[in-house]
Amino acid sequence: MTQDFVTGEKVVDAVKDAVAETLSIEKDTIKPESSLINDLDAESLDFLDINYRIEQTFGIKMARHFILEHIEEMFGEGSAIDEDGKLTEKAVELLKIRLGEELPGITAGTDMDDIPAHITVQSIANGVMDILDTLPEKCSCGASAWASDDGAKVKCSSCGEPAAFTNGDDLSQEWLRKVQEEKKIF
């Protein structure tokens, strides 16, 4: 369900905190549209560090498989990436729906390793919000009494258990199934 315990602003702020701490830079220099690679010089270890920090902050599990991998698993070999490592037209269509924005420079035929440069503070925050919006109606104890003391971690105010959100990979697969059902892309 769409939750209102953690706001979009709080998520962007927490992502900025994670980026600032990981890269040892001033938080004020980070904008929602900042590309982690092109604008902030993040490297692969930094991506891991930032993701772990965000998971700890919100008590969630982000995806361990990129969406292109899920597309190929679900819709077959070559459905997302061709034999030269280039994105297919259908992969680009899905990426644009998923990221909910124009992706300048990303077209059919783009190298798949060009995608990480498009990861921004806002796109990470959007992914976190998608996971947070999988908050179940009820806790496993049966109570419908979610609460958040810090505006980040959601827990059951009846039994104290942390909320069990859908993990990022299951969410990606659910999303792909839904989009395929609605738009018949493959």
């Binding site: 891991l48 772990y52 361990r64 990480p116």
Partner: peptide, 18 residues
Amino acid sequence: KEACLKALGWGLQGIDSI
């Protein structure tokens, strides 16, 4: 691992099980 990913043309963008 990262050098192999680069050779494969796969950019790391999170905690990737690859």
